[in-house]
Design a binder for these strands. Structure first.
Lengths: 146, 146
DNA sequence: TTGTGTCTCTATCGACCCAGTCGATTATGA
DNA sequence: TCATAATCGACTGGGTCGATAGAGACACAA
């Protein structure tokens, strides 16, 4: 399951990606336009800043902006920061592998193999989708989707 | 994330699928051979029975057995029973769709589109994998995987 | 009929995490 | 210097997860 936190993070990042040539956007504005609890969003933005995905400016006319071009930031990065590994089970994770304590023979474990496949396909999708692509996609959405 | 419950359920079902022509297997034996807390496992088996995936027999020489052939039971069915929908987010679920309260335009939502893809690929993998296939796969595993 | 060994079912527990809030602090531009 | 916005830490209420306990129902054997 994707947590609310991750969903809000994606929303916020998309909002920032939609700004014309990197203009600042304030937490309050994002919260309002995206329907996200303001204080909670601040927490999220703080974390995104610590991970180097956004820059912040304080004081009057402060706000947030993407730290990198929108076509270099992927959904996968954001989700991993908020929710941890994509793999449904730690023993199937590449980024944060952890052995199953109750698993006798990992090589032969059918569950692990299946979850590895799930992880791989999720990673392919989410690591292959940038904010920029998502932003453009959204613009075309009305005509494409029935 | 796949819960422990779902993982144990898969283990138990695989253990049952490994029985020669539908012989009974007791909860205690499954618990021991699969390294699963016994009482917790009973709960799981109970739920699997209620959902019609296993049959049970009481009394001396009681136990559990698959309710259907192993090639008609998929990982997807089991995971959904234990953990609910495969989709990372309710608005991307086919089986249990629920609208996002904080989403203005669902059609244009990039997050939903991405999660729908993740769901679809997970469903393709898990609904396409039967206990029988997993069982056979496990047997070949040693030679195939390095 | 009695005993034994299963499954069945409800209740309960502690720990942990998620979502969200509060309030004080610090930095910044006007 | 003052209003405004980000920063940070503490905290909380609720819910879920993993697991356990124990009484009861049932099947079979002796």
């Amino acid at each position: 399951m994707l947590s609310q936190k991750a969903k809000y993070a994606l929303k916020a990042m998309l909002a920032l990606a939609n700004q014309e040539n990197g203009e600042l956007l304030q937490a309050g504005d994002i919260a309002e336009q995206q329907n996200v609890p303001r204080k909670f969003l601040e927490l999220i933005l703080l974390e995104l800043r610590k991970q180097g995905l956004v820059h912040s400016h304080r004081g009057k006319h402060g706000g947030y902006t993407l730290a990198k071009p929108a076509d270099t930031i992927t959904f996968g990065q954001i989700v991993r920061i908020m929710d941890g590994p994509l793999a449904p089970i730690p023993c199937a994770s590449l980024t944060r592998y952890r052995r199953c304590v109750d698993c006798a023979d990992e090589k032969a474990c059918a569950i692990r193999r299946a979850m590895r496949q799930v992880r791989d396909s999720a990673a392919e999708i989410l690591d292959g989708l940038t904010l920029e692509q998502a932003r453009r996609g959204a613009a075309h959405a009305e005509s494409l989707t029935t």
